[in-house]
Nucleic acid binder design. Structure first.
Lengths: 208, 208
DNA sequence: CTAGCTTTTGAGAGTTACTCTCATTTCATG
DNA sequence: CATGAAATGAGAGTAACTCTCAAAAGCTAG
């Protein structure tokens, strides 16, 4: 179907043939998975089918992705985003930095609309996917905690930093879920700002 | 919410023989599971072994608990806690109410120290358990969101309420994780207050 | 207490994600 | 081209679930 690529801007050539082939296999597996899921749904799609369509053996699929959920969810953008976060001016309030890279991330993901939406759908429909997503959230949390810790002159293992970081991610994830549940109609930029506002200042006065 | 207890305060007799047997089976399965995990660890413990020790068939185990993780994690206290939350004076600030029931929950779970600690250990060691825990967190989140919404005169589906609620749970879960990772030495009451303080007022000035 | 109904249980077969091992192929390098 | 290293495929194995169906156990009327 539509060939999508969650692959980072890789300088494809200039790498050994081996490396290039690995990348090709990786995206072949992913594309096959996306296509099959669109056709039949997540549960109905077996790894064997994925392997077949990607023209590799099932063993290979598992070599590239530890779990079925990972095929859908794994992307290589986390480190990129972290880098951008660290590149922000050191005297900028960390909340401001976070806001910045979130909007950046939205711009990037807007390019891959289909994947973004597929993921959102799977997130609300398939528990295993949602679970895996939250798992990866705590990994992201560690990265983010490091950055926030640096900004605030604290330790990354500091209780306060950790709590703050995960509360942030928890809130943002919920916002994403909200968006997905409501037919993905709302503008994610707007939702993000509203979410961040709550996280920073608490509940605003209601306006009925 | 913080995981507590396994067996509900059941008025055991007065129920039909059928119901009593079901409760017995339930706890038999749970006890068998706890024991086996202590002996061999989580992964090494198969459902078949659990069934054998609990003297039921594997089919029955799955009838009582949808997944292996649920045997360890499921408890019936969430509704009880929610009730207590709703019972708090309506004019009390919701954050204060939350603080109250959290400390209450800690007192309750202190009674079943071993289970609490086993769960904490599993949470940091077994990804599947952690994932399932987070899953249940979002269910709890719905309940909590309802309560907070009522207090603040908002809708439970309100974005702001949902974001706030999940950020709260995210932060508290991280606190729990922190406690578990650090050998469960710290006093959970103290950690809870620190966490809630961060969630309410942001990072306090550091004291190095 | 028994007859008949409903609920719970066990046995067994089947599916699928994932793991491990080993032989074979495919690329890299001197 | 030869030699070593890495990637692949084939196959067998495990364990968590799911489904089905028949036997057993508790409930309820007469």
């Amino acid at each position: 179907m539509t060939p999508v690529h969650s692959t980072p801007p890789a300088d494809l050539s200039q790498l050994g043939l081996r490396e290039r082939k690995k990348i090709k296999t990786r995206t072949a597996i992913r594309d096959a998975t996306y296509a099959l899921i669109e056709e039949q749904g997540y549960e109905a799609t077996t790894v064997e089918q994925i392997a077949e369509r990607a023209e590799v053996s099932p063993s290979t699929v598992f070599r590239y992705f530890p779990t079925k959920e990972d095929i859908v969810l794994t992307d290589e953008y986390d480190p990129v985003m972290l880098e951008e976060l660290l590149a922000r001016p050191a005297d900028e309030p960390w909340m401001e930095s976070v806001r910045h890279i979130l909007h950046r991330a939205l711009d990037v993901s807007a390019v891959e609309q289909e994947v973004t939406r597929l993921r959102a759908r799977l997130m609300i429909q398939v528990p295993a996917v949602r679970a895996r997503m939250m798992e990866s959230m705590s990994v992201t949390g560690r990265l983010l905690a490091g950055a926030i810790a640096e900004r605030t002159g604290r330790d990354a293992d500091d209780l306060e930093v950790r709590v703050l970081t995960m509360s942030l991610l928890g809130g943002l994830t919920e916002m994403y879920q909200y968006w997905a549940e409501n037919g993905m109609r709302d503008d994610l930029h707007g939702l993000t700002d509203r979410a961040l506002h709550v996280l920073e200042h608490g509940l605003p006065p209601k306006k009925p």
